[in-house]
Amino acid sequence: MYNMRKRSEESCICGEGILNVMPGYIYGNCGRMQMNIIVLMKQVPEIEKVRFDPEKGRLDRSSAGATTNPFDLNALEAAVQIKEKVGGIVTAISMGPMKAEEMLRDALARGADKAILLSDERFAGADTLATAYTLAAAIRKLGAFDLVICGEKTVDGDTAQVGPEVAEFLNIPHAAYVEEILNVSENNIVVKARMERSHYIMRLTLPALITVTKDVNTPRLPTLRDKIRAMRAPITIWRYEDLEEVADPRYFGFDGSPTRVIKVYTPSAEKRLGKMISGSPEEVAREIVHVLIKNKIL
């Protein structure tokens, strides 16, 4: 695993490190370490406003605005909290259409220091593999990072795959479904992640990636002032050409995507069956058990 932990240039070396300083390890002011944290954020349609037409099997996004994938606000909040505790820089990265700039501006209002949008027609139509590949390329291009934080999943694509795939492309350890960040130190992070029937307490060596659930925190609201300031903040745009040098462009976008959505339909309107079960209590019981078996509960 090659070391991606080159420290950002603007940080300075401070003498009295609280931590046991590795040679060349760079600290920010006042002995605080400088964490480079990257947050991956996706803009999604306002799910409540997307209209699903079961009769025609269509979905109509026209009345829905765009918003930040809600889990990604938790990811951002986690990053900002770590920054506030140990010092550092939070960079928000998104891949998407230019419209996603507004989401990234919102991220700046909520505490991100930098924002990068990967936007190019040649990135479009990406499945999770291509999305993760492109995001990983951008992270690699940035050069220095300690921690990547993703949301657990999105509310549109809903796959929860991008995070672990990015980790694999970066060749770093990851933990999914993180519900609590227990400790962050110079070279590792301790998290509580939810697996099936147990919580795993895991220590990940940095650099690492985590995906967070809604339980990890409650995202703060931005102040109006920060919001308005951020409205004018510049967003760095990286296009195909910017990433070509750090990756194999054959894996970008639609052409680089191994999966194909061949058909989308809305399940027939949830008409309830409304079936009456009658008979003696024993007959009723048998009928209910039958329903439970049919639905694989038994």
């Binding site: 409540e48 606000l73 919102d106 931005p222 102040t223 109006l224 002032r225 919001k227």
Partner: peptide, 23 residues
């Protein structure tokens, strides 16, 4: 911003903004 000016002249501690439908 107009509201914010009024509130701040009355010593508001902050003006927080919820924009997403969830929030």
């Amino acid at each position: 911003e107009e509201i914010s000016r009024i509130c701040e002249s009355n010593n508001a501690l902050d003006v927080m903004l919820a924009e997403t439908p969830e929030e």
